[in-house]
């Protein structure tokens, strides 16, 4: 079975949710969810469109997202509400990735 398939991703996410729920309750689950959505998801959609190896498409989004997302959120957050800025940046980047054409090389 191909790695990164939906079942595997959901299974692993549930494992992490279960652990954080056992250790920290809903606070823990929500904290991991927020980090996943904010730092991983937007860049995940973008990096899927780039010609990289399959496992690289899984790990690069977080390492790139952890620097890029806070940068954009910070600058927008100097103009508008910080929470609004998080939502806008996440939605814009995820949307950009969703509609971005596949890139080769």
């Amino acid at each position: 079975m191909k790695i990164g398939n939906k079942e595997l991703a959901i299974g692993i996410s549930l494992l992490f949710a279960l652990l954080s729920s056992m250790l920290f309750g809903a606070t823990g689950v929500l904290a991991l969810l927020v980090m996943g959505i904010a730092f991983y998801l937007p860049l995940y959609f973008i990096i899927q469109r780039i010609d990289l190896e399959p496992e690289e498409k899984i790990f690069y989004p977080f390492f790139i997202g952890i620097g890029v997302i806070p940068t954009l959120v910070y600058w927008l957050g100097t103009l508008v509400s910080f929470r609004l800025s998080i939502v806008v940046i996440v939605v814009l980047l995820a949307g950009f990735g969703w509609f971005m054409p596949n890139k080769k090389g």
Binding site: V34, A38, G67, P70, Y74, F82
Partner: peptide, 14 residues
Amino acid sequence: PQFNTAEAIAESFS
């Protein structure tokens, strides 16, 4: 500001 903004993101919706 990146590290501190990342902390703030983690805190903001939790």
